[in-house]
């Protein structure tokens, strides 16, 4: 078991809360198993439910660095593992042209000081197990998944010119995906799985209070109730937790303490919640007023 993770789920839940993340009932078990089995954890869920936040909270909990690899289409080995610093190598070769010993030059330019570490290699070379966040893995292409599988199964990377780098400490790996592409079975098989849903009303209110400690707790409850109803509306872009927090912050900035008494002002900052024109049209002022009146 990698060091540093408590063996008790309740303790994990408590530490997550301390790190500013309010987990659902199942997440602490998933993290506990991650530590126990040494397998990566695949987090899925709609955009804005806090998948990335889990990794941040975990790294805070373990007091280890968070190494993040943001995936995108066309991500390849040079951007994910390592690359040689060609310009420096070229300079070094030119500078040593007179020495005549080609073999020595080659040994020199393929030394560690010419190696540019990318996130996966960085994660493997840490002394203390870091948290490795592979964000939005579904955006990378299938070929990259194969590369990732190799790294995740052995936690070693072979660099032809240098030799094999093996992990000193196994990182805690968290992968996130929100389904722009179906992931391969092989990758899913490697991982533990956890699906994050939008938080229920009580948990959302707790999240608001944790993230914005200065907020009035009645207002937090009202906001959570509005958001819960809003998510049931047929919206194109359902507001996530991040949107909720933005809206709460905006309301606080306006000095609002009770939504029912400030319907107009609350509607004025709806730009923090509603992100498409269609949704804006689907939620005219009257609907909005009714929504607030039911809550307040």
């Amino acid at each position: 078991m990698p060091a540093g993770l408590p063996g008790d789920r309740d303790e994990i839940a408590r530490l997550l809360v301390e790190a500013g993340y309010i987990p659902d009932a199942e997440l602490p078990t998933a993290i506990w198993l991650m530590g126990l089995l040494g397998r990566p954890l695949l987090l899925e869920g709609e955009a804005g439910v806090g998948k990335t936040e889990v990794a941040k909270a975990l790294s805070a909990l373990l007091a280890t660095p968070l190494i993040r690899l943001q995936c995108y289409e066309g991500l390849d080995q040079q951007a994910a593992l390592y690359e040689w610093n060609y310009q420096r190598q070229l300079l070094a070769i030119k500078a040593r042209e007179q020495s005549g010993d080609a073999a020595a030059v080659e040994r020199h330019v393929f030394g560690p000081e010419y190696l540019l570490e990318r996130p996966l290699l960085t994660a493997i070379r840490q002394d203390k197990p870091p948290v490795l966040l592979i964000d939005e893995i579904d955006r990378a292409d299938q070929e990259f998944e194969a590369l990732l599988l190799e790294v995740l199964s052995d936690f070693q990377i072979s660099i032809p010119e240098l030799g094999t780098v093996t992990a000193k400490a196994r990182p805690f790996v968290i992968l996130t995906s929100n389904g722009t592409r179906e992931l391969s079975d092989a990758l899913r098989r490697r991982c533990l799985y956890h699906h994050i849903d939008y938080p229920d009303e009580a948990r959302e209110a707790r999240i608001i209070r944790t993230r914005l400690p200065a907020i009035d707790s009645d207002l937090a409850a009202q906001i959570a109730a509005v958001i819960a109803r809003l998510r049931k509306e047929n919206l194109v872009k359902v507001p996530g937790v991040a949107e909720t927090l933005d809206w709460a912050a905006a309301l606080m900035g306006l000095g609002i303490r009770d939504l029912g008494a400030n319907v107009e002002a609350a509607y004025a900052v709806i730009a923090t919640l509603i992100k498409t024109e269609q949704d804006r049209a689907a939620l005219p002022r009257e609907v909005w007023v009714r929504l607030l009146e039911r809550v307040a």
Binding site: A25, E26, T29, A30, L33, L37, L41, E44, G179, D185, R188, R189, L192, Y193, H194, H195
Partner: peptide
């Protein structure tokens, strides 16, 4: 919860 995390592969 433990079995769910280990056995599930998708939503």
């Amino acid at each position: 919860q433990a079995l769910k995390t280990i056995c599930c592969r998708n939503a």
